[in-house]
Design a protein around this nucleic acid. Sequence first.
DNA 1: AACCCGGGGAT
DNA 2: ATCCCAGGGTT
Length: 348
Amino acid sequence: MVFSKVLINWYLNNKRELPWRKTRDPYKIWLSEIMLQQTRVEQGMPYYFRFNEAFPTVFDLAMASQQEVLKLWQGLGYYSRARNLHETAKYVSDELGGVFPENFRGLLKLKGVGDYTASAIASICYNEPVAVVDGNVYRVLARYFGSATPINSSEGIKEFKVLATELLDEDNPSAFNQALMEFGALQCRPKNPLCATCPFNSSCLALKENRISKLPVKLKKGKIRHRYFNYLVFHSEENTTLLNQRKGKGIWNGLYEFPLIETEKQLTAAEFLMEEEFREKTGKNAIIRLHNEKPVVHKLSHQHIYARFWIIEPQKSPENGIPVSKIAKYPVPVLIQNFLNEYEPADY
DNA sequence: AACCCGGGGAT
DNA sequence: ATCCCAGGGTT
């Protein structure tokens, strides 16, 4: 039996009912694919529903403000996805009359759409025979063919794309691609894969050689960065506070946060109170209260952030103050949202 | 080729 | 604590 036939048969019997599997509308497929980049289906699902409700068509998304889009994306992470999503929506809406490109080459030119996403949209919406290679596919193929080529090396990327392309069922690229990914997610899982009931357990090389737990091979990444954030939560008599929008290439680009003072090392509260930048920003005779003695530890993939929140009641209400009642309109990192959730009920 | 970009769930 | 998730962009 041919690999693709067995796979698709498995898929038809085991696939999950997912909302984006009920349509071939390229707008909906594109939206789901961007959201699911490096994101679990269960985590992305509620966002998919919210975006569909808020922006039923690409025109609706194009007409929204970046702030609205980022606010709706808040909590999903990798915020460049949201900015690129919005930019591409405007491009498709304004320059392409709302019609997405109808092949792999055209899709690949869209911002935020790389090789994987262009292949996924082209195959699912137009049945174009282009193979998708996501994290699931790397795992399935590395095990089935017993390949120890690192999946995040340039050779690995090439090798597995070739393998997926060779296996691809050209009669049904849409089903094949989705089947291979679903198979990786449900059957050929990272830990404790279901080899006993696997339809490929007689031909899988990794299983035969007892190397399932060793594959796929992935090169290690760099070390975790530790950062020390001190947020200045102004709270004026007129119930205003200060928010800044993060800019540049770092984390949370485009999101808002309280005025931030970052220090190289973890300072004690007493040491920080003496810092010149802190005294400068708080102004004279302000009432200062440390909200959390123990820094909040916010863990990202490559950074651990140790955050303290200082409540500042200034002598003079700051200029450019934002009414406390409007804070909820601003997209903020989860770290800030968590603070607001516990602080707001008591004092705001 | 190496590095950066979030947050959360499973183990 | 570690891994990894329907990856893409920048340098």
